[in-house]
Protein backbone atom coordinates (compact mmCIF):
# COMPACT_ATOMS: atom_id res chain seq x y z
CA UNK A 1 0.00 0.00 0.00
CA UNK A 2 2.66 2.50 1.07
CA UNK A 3 5.04 1.58 -1.75
CA UNK A 4 2.23 1.62 -4.30
CA UNK A 5 1.11 5.09 -3.19
CA UNK A 6 4.57 6.48 -4.00
CA UNK A 7 3.92 5.87 -7.72
CA UNK A 8 1.14 8.47 -8.17
CA UNK A 9 2.86 10.82 -5.72
CA UNK A 10 6.13 10.87 -7.67
CA UNK A 11 4.32 11.00 -11.00
CA UNK A 12 2.41 14.10 -9.87
CA UNK A 13 5.60 15.53 -8.35
CA UNK A 14 7.58 15.06 -11.56
CA UNK A 15 4.89 16.79 -13.62
CA UNK A 16 4.56 19.69 -11.17
CA UNK A 17 8.32 20.32 -10.91
CA UNK A 18 8.54 20.07 -14.69
CA UNK A 19 5.83 22.74 -14.94
CA UNK A 20 7.41 24.86 -12.19
CA UNK A 21 10.56 25.41 -14.28
CA UNK A 22 8.36 27.19 -16.84
CA UNK A 23 6.79 29.60 -14.35
CA UNK A 24 7.81 33.24 -14.40
CA UNK A 25 10.43 34.11 -11.79
CA UNK A 26 9.21 34.65 -8.27
CA UNK A 27 8.28 38.32 -7.78
CA UNK A 28 8.54 39.26 -11.45
CA UNK A 29 6.26 42.32 -11.97
CA UNK A 30 5.90 41.44 -15.67
CA UNK A 31 4.45 37.98 -14.96
CA UNK A 32 1.08 37.35 -16.66
CA UNK A 33 -0.79 37.19 -13.34
CA UNK A 34 0.51 40.53 -12.08
CA UNK A 35 0.42 42.36 -15.40
CA UNK A 36 -3.11 41.31 -16.38
CA UNK A 37 -5.66 44.05 -17.12
CA UNK A 38 -7.99 42.76 -14.38
CA UNK A 39 -5.45 43.11 -11.56
CA UNK A 40 -4.28 46.48 -12.90
CA UNK A 41 -7.88 47.65 -12.99
CA UNK A 42 -8.44 46.58 -9.38
CA UNK A 43 -5.29 48.34 -8.19
CA UNK A 44 -5.72 51.49 -10.26
CA UNK A 45 -9.46 52.11 -10.06
CA UNK A 46 -10.47 50.94 -6.57
CA UNK A 47 -9.84 54.39 -5.12
CA UNK A 48 -11.90 56.11 -7.81
CA UNK A 49 -14.77 53.59 -7.84
CA UNK A 50 -15.27 52.93 -4.15
CA UNK A 51 -12.93 55.20 -2.14
CA UNK A 52 -11.82 52.17 -0.11
CA UNK A 53 -8.07 52.22 0.69
CA UNK A 54 -7.81 48.44 1.23
CA UNK A 55 -8.05 46.90 -2.24
CA UNK A 56 -8.56 43.38 -0.89
CA UNK A 57 -11.74 44.40 0.93
CA UNK A 58 -13.04 46.26 -2.11
CA UNK A 59 -12.46 43.30 -4.43
CA UNK A 60 -13.83 40.87 -1.86
CA UNK A 61 -17.07 42.65 -1.04
CA UNK A 62 -17.76 44.66 -4.17
CA UNK A 63 -16.15 43.53 -7.41
CA UNK A 64 -16.39 39.84 -6.48
CA UNK A 65 -19.37 40.15 -4.14
CA UNK A 66 -21.29 37.29 -5.72
CA UNK A 67 -18.40 34.89 -5.11
CA UNK A 68 -18.04 35.94 -1.46
CA UNK A 69 -21.77 35.57 -0.87
CA UNK A 70 -21.75 31.94 -1.90
CA UNK A 71 -18.55 31.23 0.01
CA UNK A 72 -20.50 32.39 3.08
CA UNK A 73 -23.33 30.07 2.09
CA UNK A 74 -20.80 27.20 1.89
CA UNK A 75 -19.66 27.95 5.47
CA UNK A 76 -23.30 28.01 6.58
CA UNK A 77 -24.10 24.69 4.88
CA UNK A 78 -21.00 23.05 6.39
CA UNK A 79 -22.12 24.17 9.85
CA UNK A 80 -25.63 22.81 9.30
CA UNK A 81 -24.19 19.51 8.07
CA UNK A 82 -22.10 19.13 11.24
CA UNK A 83 -25.24 19.71 13.29
CA UNK A 84 -27.21 17.19 11.26
CA UNK A 85 -24.49 14.53 11.52
CA UNK A 86 -23.82 14.83 15.25
CA UNK A 87 -27.27 15.67 16.66
CA UNK A 88 -28.61 12.86 18.90
CA UNK A 89 -25.72 10.57 17.88
CA UNK A 90 -25.12 9.67 21.56
CA UNK A 91 -27.50 9.74 24.51
CA UNK A 92 -27.04 12.59 26.96
CA UNK A 93 -24.92 11.68 29.95
CA UNK A 94 -24.52 8.08 28.80
CA UNK A 95 -20.79 7.65 28.22
CA UNK A 96 -18.18 9.37 30.36
CA UNK A 97 -14.89 10.20 28.70
CA UNK A 98 -11.61 10.48 30.55
CA UNK A 99 -11.36 14.22 30.09
CA UNK A 100 -14.82 14.92 31.58
CA UNK A 101 -14.15 15.62 35.24
CA UNK A 102 -16.33 17.22 37.88
CA UNK A 103 -13.71 19.74 38.98
CA UNK A 104 -14.80 23.32 39.52
CA UNK A 105 -13.62 25.83 36.89
CA UNK A 106 -10.26 27.23 37.94
CA UNK A 107 -10.49 30.58 39.75
CA UNK A 108 -7.44 32.20 38.15
CA UNK A 109 -8.36 31.06 34.64
CA UNK A 110 -11.98 32.16 34.84
CA UNK A 111 -11.11 35.57 36.27
CA UNK A 112 -8.51 36.18 33.59
CA UNK A 113 -11.03 35.17 30.92
CA UNK A 114 -13.56 37.56 32.44
CA UNK A 115 -11.04 40.34 31.82
CA UNK A 116 -9.90 39.20 28.37
CA UNK A 117 -13.18 38.32 26.65
CA UNK A 118 -14.57 41.89 26.43
CA UNK A 119 -11.27 43.05 24.94
CA UNK A 120 -11.33 40.25 22.38
CA UNK A 121 -14.89 41.11 21.40
CA UNK A 122 -14.15 44.81 21.03
CA UNK A 123 -11.11 43.90 18.94
CA UNK A 124 -13.36 41.73 16.77
CA UNK A 125 -15.68 44.68 16.13
CA UNK A 126 -12.65 46.88 15.40
CA UNK A 127 -11.31 44.37 12.87
CA UNK A 128 -14.72 44.11 11.23
CA UNK A 129 -15.36 47.84 11.02
CA UNK A 130 -11.78 48.77 10.11
CA UNK A 131 -11.51 46.27 7.29
CA UNK A 132 -11.74 49.14 4.81
CA UNK A 133 -8.54 50.88 5.80
CA UNK A 134 -6.43 48.13 7.38
CA UNK A 135 -6.15 44.35 7.11
CA UNK A 136 -9.35 42.79 8.37
CA UNK A 137 -12.97 42.39 7.46
CA UNK A 138 -15.93 40.17 8.02
CA UNK A 139 -14.16 36.82 7.93
CA UNK A 140 -11.40 37.76 10.37
CA UNK A 141 -13.68 39.70 12.71
CA UNK A 142 -16.17 36.84 12.74
CA UNK A 143 -13.52 34.27 13.54
CA UNK A 144 -12.14 36.36 16.43
CA UNK A 145 -15.67 36.85 17.78
CA UNK A 146 -16.30 33.10 17.58
CA UNK A 147 -12.98 32.47 19.34
CA UNK A 148 -14.12 34.60 22.30
CA UNK A 149 -17.10 32.29 22.83
CA UNK A 150 -14.85 29.23 22.46
CA UNK A 151 -12.61 30.71 25.16
CA UNK A 152 -15.59 30.92 27.52
CA UNK A 153 -16.48 27.30 26.76
CA UNK A 154 -12.88 26.22 27.39
CA UNK A 155 -12.43 27.97 30.72
CA UNK A 156 -15.86 27.26 32.29
CA UNK A 157 -17.78 24.56 30.47
CA UNK A 158 -19.94 24.32 27.39
CA UNK A 159 -23.20 25.04 29.24
CA UNK A 160 -21.90 28.44 30.38
CA UNK A 161 -21.08 29.42 26.81
CA UNK A 162 -24.32 28.01 25.43
CA UNK A 163 -26.32 29.97 28.04
CA UNK A 164 -24.92 33.12 26.40
CA UNK A 165 -25.10 31.95 22.78
CA UNK A 166 -27.40 28.95 22.42
CA UNK A 167 -27.26 26.70 19.38
CA UNK A 168 -30.68 27.84 18.17
CA UNK A 169 -29.55 31.43 18.37
CA UNK A 170 -26.33 30.41 16.59
CA UNK A 171 -28.18 29.08 13.59
CA UNK A 172 -30.50 32.09 13.65
CA UNK A 173 -27.57 34.51 13.58
CA UNK A 174 -25.86 32.48 10.84
CA UNK A 175 -28.97 32.59 8.66
CA UNK A 176 -29.46 36.28 9.45
CA UNK A 177 -25.93 37.00 8.22
CA UNK A 178 -26.65 35.52 4.82
CA UNK A 179 -30.01 37.30 4.71
CA UNK A 180 -28.27 40.64 5.42
CA UNK A 181 -25.84 39.98 2.57
CA UNK A 182 -28.49 38.85 0.10
CA UNK A 183 -30.87 41.53 1.36
CA UNK A 184 -28.45 44.33 0.47
CA UNK A 185 -28.06 42.74 -2.96
CA UNK A 186 -31.81 42.46 -3.55
CA UNK A 187 -32.43 45.95 -2.15
CA UNK A 188 -30.09 47.40 -4.76
CA UNK A 189 -32.10 45.47 -7.36
CA UNK A 190 -35.30 47.18 -6.18
CA UNK A 191 -33.59 50.54 -6.53
CA UNK A 192 -33.02 49.89 -10.23
CA UNK A 193 -29.54 48.40 -10.33
CA UNK A 194 -28.37 44.83 -10.65
CA UNK A 195 -27.94 42.27 -7.88
CA UNK A 196 -25.23 43.53 -5.45
CA UNK A 197 -24.88 46.80 -7.41
CA UNK A 198 -24.29 48.88 -4.30
CA UNK A 199 -23.92 52.20 -6.11
CA UNK A 200 -27.72 52.38 -6.47
CA UNK A 201 -28.01 52.71 -2.69
CA UNK A 202 -27.13 56.40 -3.08
CA UNK A 203 -30.89 57.01 -3.46
CA UNK A 204 -31.54 56.04 0.16
CA UNK A 205 -28.18 57.00 1.72
CA UNK A 206 -27.30 60.71 1.90
CA UNK A 207 -23.89 60.16 0.21
CA UNK A 208 -22.30 60.00 -3.22
CA UNK A 209 -22.28 56.89 -5.44
CA UNK A 210 -18.76 55.98 -4.36
CA UNK A 211 -19.47 56.38 -0.67
CA UNK A 212 -22.68 54.33 -1.07
CA UNK A 213 -20.50 51.44 -2.21
CA UNK A 214 -18.16 52.10 0.73
CA UNK A 215 -20.96 51.89 3.28
CA UNK A 216 -22.76 48.96 1.62
CA UNK A 217 -19.50 47.01 1.85
CA UNK A 218 -19.58 47.53 5.61
CA UNK A 219 -23.10 46.09 5.72
CA UNK A 220 -22.04 43.10 3.69
CA UNK A 221 -19.05 42.50 5.96
CA UNK A 222 -21.35 42.58 9.00
CA UNK A 223 -23.44 39.84 7.37
CA UNK A 224 -20.34 37.73 6.72
CA UNK A 225 -19.14 38.33 10.28
CA UNK A 226 -22.46 37.15 11.78
CA UNK A 227 -22.42 33.90 9.81
CA UNK A 228 -18.76 33.12 10.51
CA UNK A 229 -19.08 33.87 14.26
CA UNK A 230 -22.05 31.57 14.67
CA UNK A 231 -20.70 28.71 12.57
CA UNK A 232 -17.25 28.72 14.22
CA UNK A 233 -18.82 28.46 17.66
CA UNK A 234 -21.35 25.84 16.52
CA UNK A 235 -18.51 23.75 15.05
CA UNK A 236 -16.60 23.78 18.34
CA UNK A 237 -19.69 23.16 20.49
CA UNK A 238 -20.71 20.11 18.50
CA UNK A 239 -17.29 18.58 17.93
CA UNK A 240 -16.05 18.94 21.51
CA UNK A 241 -19.13 17.22 22.99
CA UNK A 242 -20.08 14.79 20.19
CA UNK A 243 -23.33 16.70 19.71
CA UNK A 244 -24.43 16.26 23.36
CA UNK A 245 -23.90 19.98 24.03
CA UNK A 246 -22.83 19.40 27.63
CA UNK A 247 -19.55 19.05 29.48
CA UNK A 248 -17.05 19.84 26.79
CA UNK A 249 -13.31 19.73 27.28
Amino acid sequence: MKAASMVPVFLVGFLLVFAATDFPEWGNPQSPASDSPVSSHFIGKTGVDTEVPNMVTAVLADYRGFDTMFETVVVFIAGMAVLAILKNSVKKGSVRRDHEVDAEPDLIVTNMVRLIVPVIQIFAFYVLAHGHVSPGGGFQGGVIMGASFILIALSWDLETALARFSLNRCMGVAAAGILIYAGIGIFSMFLGGEFLDYAELERVLPVSREMARYHAMLGVEIGVGCTVTAIMFALYANLSSEGKLEGGL
Partner: peptide, 11 residues
Protein backbone atom coordinates in the same frame (compact mmCIF):
# COMPACT_ATOMS: atom_id res chain seq x y z
CA UNK B 1 -9.86 27.74 15.34
CA UNK B 2 -8.70 24.73 13.33
CA UNK B 3 -6.18 23.69 16.02
CA UNK B 4 -8.82 24.03 18.74
CA UNK B 5 -11.34 22.04 16.72
CA UNK B 6 -8.79 19.31 15.96
CA UNK B 7 -7.79 19.00 19.63
CA UNK B 8 -11.44 19.01 20.74
CA UNK B 9 -12.22 16.18 18.31
CA UNK B 10 -9.16 14.10 19.22
CA UNK B 11 -10.22 14.21 22.89
Amino acid sequence: ISTVVLVATVF
